[in-house]
Amino acid sequence: MTQQQPLTIAGHSYQSRLLIGTGKYRDMAQAGEAIRASGAEIVTVAIRRTNIGQNADEENLLDVVPPSEFTILPNTAGCYTADDAVRVCRLARELLDGHDLVKLEVLGDPQTLYPDIPATLEAAERLVADGFKVMVYTSDDPIIARRLEEMGCVAVMPLASPIGSGLGIQNRYNLLTILENASVPIIVDAGVGTASDAAVALELGAGGVLLNPPVAAAQEPVLMASAMRKGIEAGREAYLAGRMPMRRFASASSPLEGTFWQGRQ
């Protein structure tokens, strides 16, 4: 069935169209449980300094989401320059034994967390040249999305509203324009707040959704992870099914013939 058609990124096929972050959970156990409930196969991680001399037996994230079971997607969160983003990606590749799929984000300012597009383009170019498979966080500008695709990024990931805002899909026509012109997967990255937002993104034709706070910051993260999974599946099926056209006024569902009462026609 067409519903089963996988999401293919850089030659790998994934059954799940939900990509999930590993940040902001109460603890490692909750992160692991929520991520499994979400059905996600691709999980993002951040790259940071190791704590030296403390918590010698603290749990390692990669024990909770082992690379043998999940595709690990290291991000460049917190980078404001192309140099820093490239540096983080090189260390991530070493950390993950040569695994070269990365989530590139080069931020413009801390209030909006919007991408710095010139720096993003520069970093993407350098990373692609260095052999990385780049999934790139970007704005909802269709021209920039196309440029990133042409540069060789394996997925383009426009925001739907600001990172961590939970404001949902605020730019559906821009997303639609990006989707209609794309030949790599378009992953909605940032802005989703709840399951219906994820469904809307998939209904528009998005290849998938990447999210973190909507699950981690829910009152019940594991339950929300399950809801997201269903939202994604519902949205995908609705997209494939093809929605009915919208019309401004009503159209009765029951036939007008055969009525046996005197009334308004």
Partner: peptide, 10 residues
């Protein structure tokens, strides 16, 4: 020297 690891992130 920087010694880095993976931690939770989105």
């Amino acid at each position: 020297i920087e010694i880095i690891r993976a931690i939770g992130g989105g």
